[in-house]
């Protein structure tokens, strides 16, 4: 443990063990993305075959708007979920949840609590010690990046969605629509909202279920023997 109570990382177990969470989920992401591409290609070709049109191979499908919109509609909702979670948990509380701060620490907290400015330690990130704009930016960098990735993914979904929607409309002998019209379309909002509702359900479920249920050894859970009313305690 360091003097301020935080556990040092990266000194034991080698690179793999020290980064196994990121590496495992990053690798699984690539495998599942590839599987999604194969399944999506097959489904897309089924539609084309029914309409008597040319089927396409996996390579062209990977560059298609159909694949792009299916990928980006999920990405944007995940980044939105994490942005809302990171930002919302500054002000919102759940008694008894390890996902919540203690009930008396609502808000952005003091400079001392956050170890910024003159309270920064020698091990603090450089911008945390700054007293101006850099500290302000760095103090919100996680939420800002999540919000930026959400907006970028949502923009990509809207552009890819317009192209995919128009490709389908042309197959159905309908006029294509503009990007602006697509932003008000049922397809765009159906894709967005169906992802958002599932993310919000997952967050609400996690916040409340973690009050009463435990997962031994997980930092997402309270210690098994921790009382239900204990808030902001991680196992």
């Amino acid at each position: 443990m360091t003097p301020d109570g935080a556990h040092r990382t990266g000194h034991r177990g080698g690179f793999w063990r020290s980064n196994s969470l990121t590496l495992t989920f990053g690798g699984a992401f690539l495998v599942v993305l590839a599987a999604q591409a194969v399944a999506g290609n097959a489904e897309f070709n089924e539609q084309l075959a029914v309409e008597g049109l040319q089927r396409i191979g996996l390579g062209p499908y990977l560059m298609s708007s159909d694949f792009a919109v299916d990928v980006t509609e999920n990405w944007q909702s995940e980044f939105l979920q994490f942005f809302l979670y990171v930002y919302g948990t500054v002000y919102l509380l759940q008694r008894g949840s390890p996902e919540s701060k203690p009930l008396d620490r609502v808000g952005i907290e003091s400079e001392r609590d956050q170890r910024v400015g003159e309270h920064a330690t020698p091990e603090s990130p450089r911008w945390a010690a700054d007293k101006g704009r850099r500290q302000s930016v760095y103090a919100h960098s996680l939420g800002l990046v999540m919000a930026g990735l959400f907006l970028l993914s949502w923009l990509a979904q809207s552009v890819a969605g317009t192209a995919a929607h128009n490709e389908m409309r042309l197959r159905q002998l309908q006029d294509p629509v503009s990007w602006a019209s697509y932003l008000g379309s049922a397809d765009f909002w159906s894709r967005s909202l169906q992802n958002w509702q599932s993310e919000l359900l997952a967050v609400a479920s996690m916040a409340v279920l973690s009050v009463y249920l435990r997962q031994r050894g997980s930092p997402e859970s309270k210690p098994v023997g921790s009382p239900h009313h204990a808030t902001g305690v991680e196992g």
């Binding site: 560059m63 298609s64 708007s65 159909d66 694949f67 792009a68 919109v69 990928v71 980006t72 970028l152 993914s153 923009l155 990509a156 552009v159 890819a160 192209a163 995919a164």
Partner: peptide, 8 residues
């Protein structure tokens, strides 16, 4: 963003 959007 362009690649993700399926732009060609």
């Amino acid at each position: 963003a362009a690649v993700l959007s399926g732009c060609g």
